[in-house]
Simulated scan of single mutants.
Amino acid sequence: MNISGAVDVSSKIMSSRADKYIFPSSVAAFGGALILAPIFLQMPSEYTTYANKKQLAVSEEINRDRIQQRKTTADLIQKTGLLPEGRSLRLIDYDNSKTRPRLRKQTLQNYLADELIFVYDRSNICAGRIENRKFSWKGDSSTACKNAPVINSDN
């Protein structure tokens, strides 16, 4: 104590307080976080590359799944010896004209002998039918499109 009875100010200034270290340590922690941020976060310039890689990986996974499903289906078809069943064939290069559509023999052989397949043009109008692996065009036979189901263009 001083003679004047006042408390020693120098002893209060020299006291150890923890709050005087909060600001410098928070600045240091923020700086450390900025330094370590690229390790844990993708930088904005790498976002597009990262997104493209992720999208490519997802699409490749979908394609691999489709290929696997097709392989399973093909193996099952080969094992059973049955062809997939379809009741109609749509010709995209034929538009209900006066000329007979061209169907390859290989296309006709894809169907079983006892199947009845209706053939449609690109506007969903009946163009004929495949019966006993032979194509009957509606221009040649008036009964070629008899009892043909109507296909809605909304589908």
Results as ranks from 00 to 15, higher is better:
Phe135Thr: 00
Trp137Cys: 04
Leu76Cys: 09
Ala57Tyr: 03
Ile3Gln: 10
Met1Asn: 03
Phe23Cys: 03
Ser26Ala: 13
Arg64Thr: 13
Ser10Gln: 11
Gly5Asp: 03
Glu131Met: 09
Leu34Thr: 06
Gln106Thr: 13
Asp19Trp: 08
Leu34Pro: 03
Asp95Cys: 07
Asp140Ala: 04
Ser26Gln: 07
Ala33Thr: 06
Gly5Ser: 04
Ala6Phe: 09
Arg87His: 14
Asn52Trp: 13
Asn152Ser: 15
Tyr111Ala: 02
Leu108Gln: 03
Val58Asp: 09
Lys138Leu: 11
Ala37Met: 08
Arg102Phe: 05
Asp75Val: 00
Phe118Val: 01
Arg100Trp: 01
Tyr21Lys: 10
Ser4Gly: 08
Gln109Glu: 14
Ala33Asp: 05
Ser142His: 08
Glu46Thr: 10
Leu83Pro: 02
Lys20Ile: 15
Lys54Trp: 03
Asn52Met: 11
Asp121Asn: 10
Ser15Cys: 04
Lys54Asp: 01
Asn2Thr: 02
Ser25Met: 04
Ala144Gly: 04
Lys138Asn: 15
Ala74Pro: 00
Ile125Thr: 09
Val119Thr: 00
Val27Arg: 09
Thr48Lys: 15
Glu115Asp: 09
Ser142Lys: 14
Ile67Ser: 06
Phe118Tyr: 14
Gln109Asp: 15
Lys12Asp: 03
Ser4Ala: 13
Thr72Ser: 14
Val27Asp: 10
Ile39Val: 12
Asp93Glu: 06
Gln106Val: 05
Asn124Ser: 14
Arg104Tyr: 04
Leu112His: 13
Asp114His: 10
Asn63His: 04
Thr143His: 13
Ile3Met: 10
Pro84His: 05
Arg90Tyr: 09
Asp121Gln: 05
Leu91Ile: 03
Gln106Pro: 00
Ser142Met: 07
Asp75Tyr: 06
Phe40Pro: 02
Phe40Asp: 04
Ile62Tyr: 09
Pro84Cys: 01
Asn132Trp: 11
Ser25Gly: 05
Ile117Lys: 01
Ser153Arg: 09
